[in-house]
């Protein structure tokens, strides 16, 4: 069961919408974990683009999605570890309060 190729533009629009929501979320929120979630959302929006294009351009797009997921998993593991580490130190995860990296 699948949709016809004419659904490609629609898929892309959905993907763009999700990506934009992710960007807006990153800009909107201060909670590090929510920002993280939004990044995951953006990654998935990209995945949708890959999958949608794969139907016309070849199965490699799907392989790429696979890699994106692996990277996302690694990123999530390390990122969450950092958040935990930061939380232990500051007792909060508000990104506006972390400004030590300016040096």
């Amino acid at each position: 069961m699948s949709v016809p190729p004419e659904y490609l533009p629609l898929s892309l629009v959905v993907s763009a919408t999700l990506f934009t929501i992710g960007v807006g979320g990153v800009l909107l929120r201060r909670n590090a974990i929510i920002i993280f979630l939004c990044i995951e959302l953006m990654l998935n929006a990209v995945n949708l683009t890959f999958v949608a294009f794969a139907r016309q351009l070849g199965v490699d797009g799907q392989v790429f999605v696979f890699f994106v997921m692996a990277v996302a998993a690694a990123e999530a593991a390390v990122g969450l570890a950092i958040i935990i580490s930061v939380f232990r130190h500051y007792e909060m995860v508000d990104v506006e309060r972390f400004d030590l990296l300016k040096w």
Partner: peptide, 16 residues
């Protein structure tokens, strides 16, 4: 999204 993947012929990706 996983549902969309299925509809776009990416069954394995949808499962993953």
């Amino acid at each position: 999204l996983s549902g969309l993947f299925v509809l776009l012929d990416a069954h394995f990706i949808a499962a993953v």
